[in-house]
């Protein structure tokens, strides 16, 4: 009885404190809100400045640059053409081919990369002795850069000192000069290089699924296959979706391995969008066209990001 009394008194004291102390002293709501909003903007100001100088201004400037055609010879003035250049570039075969190549590249790298990463993650998720060694190996490519991966594979593919000739396989023309095989070869390098990250991502996704759910499924009669398809995959779908979108964005930003292995060739078969922008700017010195391409690249990446953000928002509601 005494305990119950004590509890009630405590509760009352607390609520009366809230009513008694805070209400009379509270300043008019609107003024306090205004002050808070002012403070919020003040605190945001440094990052706004940084974003403005390094992101917003260059972006608008780039968009604007797309309205000007770069003259064929340096020294002549830029010519204002409005949206004409946007229309010309975005309907050109070079651009469409480049988008096609990039999409193809994405299709080659993303599903295979995720399937591989997921497969390894499922293997490494077993409770076995010494599994830590495999986890370390599987995630090790996180520590390599695109440049390192490219050099390694460039050497392996090398028609003279590479692994393939050593194995007695020596395709003509060499893989990286073969219009049919160059893109898959670069995709392979990319899958290998991102495998560590995908593996870690999938592993953490797997670890977030409580063991008891798998055990319940085992008792409920689900074999390994059923558990994988009916439990693991659905519960991992947010992670997989995340990996797909991130993989897509990565694919559209691929540059290093192209530059180091194929320079967009042979026959522009590996001329992905980012590399196309770079070539247009550096080799053709066509600032206006490069600006248009950059805007296109931005739009695609932005769309992917928006899709991803929408989804992440939804995932919060989905949570248990």
């Amino acid at each position: 009885m005494s305990t119950i009394d004590g509890g009630a008194t405590l509760g009352e004291t607390r609520s009366s404190a809230v009513v008694g102390v805070e209400e009379p002293k509270r300043p008019p709501r609107s003024r306090r809100r205004m002050r808070e909003i002012g403070l919020a903007y003040l605190l945001l100001l440094p990052s706004l400045v940084i974003f403005g100088v390094f992101i917003f201004y260059p972006f608008l400037r780039n968009f604007y640059l797309g309205f000007y055609r770069t003259p064929p010879f340096p020294g002549l003035p830029m010519r204002y053409v409005g949206f004409d250049q946007y229309r010309d570039v975005l309907t050109s075969t070079d651009f469409l081919d480049s988008v096609k190549t990039t999409v193809l590249f994405m299709i080659m790298t993303v599903p295979a990369g995720i399937a591989l990463g997921l497969g390894l993650a499922v293997l490494a998720h077993q409770r076995l002795k010494g599994i830590g060694v495999y986890r370390t190996i599987f995630s090790s490519t996180v520590a390599t850069s695109v440049a390192v991966a490219s050099v390694i594979f460039g050497t392996l593919f090398n028609p003279v000192v590479g692994l393939l000739p050593w194995l007695g396989v020596n395709p003509r023309p060499p893989i990286l000069d073969n219009p049919q095989w160059a893109l898959p070869a670069v995709a392979l390098v990319t899958i290998w290089q991102t495998l560590g990250l995908t593996f870690i991502l999938m592993s953490s996704g797997l670890q977030a699924i409580p063991d008891e759910i798998h055990e319940a499924a085992r008792v409920d009669g689900a074999g390994a296959g059923t558990r994988f398809w009916k439990i693991t995959i659905p519960l991992l779908s947010p992670t997989i979706f995340f990996a797909v979108v991130i993989g897509g964005i990565f694919a559209f930003q691929t540059f290093g391995q192209i530059d180091l292995l194929t320079q967009g060739g042979p026959l522009k078969k590996t001329n992905v969008l980012t590399y196309f922008v770079y070539r247009t700017l550096r080799t053709e010195n066509n600032d206006g066209k490069a600006a248009v391409l950059a805007v296109a690249l931005f739009t695609i990446t932005m769309t992917l990001t928006l899709v991803q953000m929408r989804f992440l928002e939804r995932r919060v509601h989905y949570g248990r």
Binding site: E212, A222, I231, P234
Partner: peptide, 25 residues
Amino acid sequence: AMVFQSYALYPHMSVRKNIEFPLRT
């Protein structure tokens, strides 16, 4: 059949699907 302390329901399935699961398998 087992009832777990955490209940271990399948979060992506409806109540019906949850109950049905041992029969489906």
